[in-house]
Write a protein that binds this DNA or RNA. Sequence first.
DNA 1: GGAAACGGCGCG
DNA 2: AAAGCGCGCCGTTTCC
Length: 576
Amino acid sequence: MPPGADAPASPWSDVERIAVGRSAGGDIVVIGLDHGSEVARRPLTAAEFPAWVAQREHEAGPRGVRWVWPSTAAWYPRLLDAGVRVTKAHDLRLCHAILRDAVPAATALVAATAWDAPDAEEGSSPGALFDLDPGPAAHRDDLDGVLAEIARQDDAAARAVDPARMRLLLAAESAGSLVAAEMRAAGVPWSAERHARILEETLGRRRGDGTPERMAELAAEVRVRLGDPSLAIDSPARLLAALRRAGIRVTSTSRWELRDVDHPAIAPLLAYKKLARLLTANGWAWLDEWVHDGRFRPLYLPGGVVTGRWATSGGGALQLPRRLREALRADDGWRIVSADVAQLEPRVLAAMARDTRMADAARGRDLYEGIVATGAVAHRSEAKVAMLGAMYGATTGDAGRLVPRLRRAFPAAMAAVDGAAATGEAGGVVSTWLGRTSPGVDPGWAAAARSAGASAEAERRVRAARRDRGRFTRNFIVQGTAAEWALAWLADLRLRLAALPPTEGPAAAASGPAFARRAHIAYFLHDEVIVHAPADRADEAAQAIRDASASAGRLLFGSFPLDFRLDLAIRDDAAK
DNA sequence: GGAAACGGCGCG
DNA sequence: AAAGCGCGCCGTTTCC
């Protein structure tokens, strides 16, 4: 069944496409791609480009324009810096990667190697003195190359297993690239003062040597209680040796193993590790490096994870400790509107597997409570551990014991993940709902499989590798489809927010010219979004988040009767 | 002396 | 020492 066979037309389809590249002389060149386009091939200087884009968007009206460019990361920031946003894009680099893997028949894509290179690092900007080789990322800008790649991708999308779904995926991935660039431009509103206060409350003041007081005290305590005055507590190997000398039988120094040990050194050690983690990951050095003018500006990498999830580069934006979220504060006269999806992955699994029993369990309530209500398990915590176990491939422990109950209660959903695992174990490729494919097996796989009988050890390794891969493909279809839902959510949300009128209240100057007066997405973490909204637009922004989640569900899964519930809050930081 | 691997832990 | 997926980043250790 096509996605949303009975769903509204994609909000991302049927718009004017304009290709963007560079001439041999280095000028920016734009050219309309549609039959009879009014946009003839036209050179523009870098100075002219933003205004021309803005004018074209204006003329196109609410549907906007789809800008087909080599990479959003390379082209969009300069528009945003000029205060210009675009409606839609097609990111050739990101879409190349998807199509290359998902449509093996499109052999022309496999050969087009310049499109496989990552975007140039921000630091090594083009034009850096002595930089003789501009790198593959720059070669991609050549307009003739751009047009050739567009032709290859159009052809490949048409040959996809399901062209409609694939085009949706390409549009969603590209929309994600716009959101990523916009979030970087606007930044996460971050109070360095709050952050520093949390650090000092938790770690203590910094001593002369830079070590925080509280950490130094805890380290000293550990040394005393282990009877090892010179212990290098930050070295796992030495710490392990010291623990064993003290008669503590552990095989590693990780928290989950130390947790159960009864010894006076353990409590201060665990406390120390907790503080050390905060200091090294998000301490004063992080604050100095990453927060400026009240904003944290991470570099997001859409499609950076095999499943289609985003990654980040630098700053660890996707690993911010929960307790530091207190430092995420709205500007004066603005609000933080935050929303996260309740049980996104199980819901996505229910929808993609067309499991109406699981959808019934999920509708209008906490999905885990719904599972309890079916009688499959007795408690919410069991439902959760069983569900996670089903999606991750647990075989032992509580999860392994509970998964069979889910298999009986929700055969359709479980058949989907079990089938994906079986395909993976056999060396096959699986795909998400919209058609992103899992990586194939590496060349060593077949050779290893042949050697399976060679020895008991080889046999064991091959079996383990098969099971590992099965767990990966099992999870891939769920995590990857959840990432697609989230992209659809973001894509729809950014257009809804862009349609809200600008505030008449105070501007958020640090969010840059494109967003200083408008509600904008400030943070995204797999199944959670934070919007920075002017106070007079906060309610509308919250509604936009809800509406976008409903749209995303319809876009991917049509009328399949399942809701995606949100936990949503509008926070007034001034009131706290 | 720098790159890569490792142990550990933060997030979903 | 992980049973059970996907990441990034830190400090230490090891390798070249």
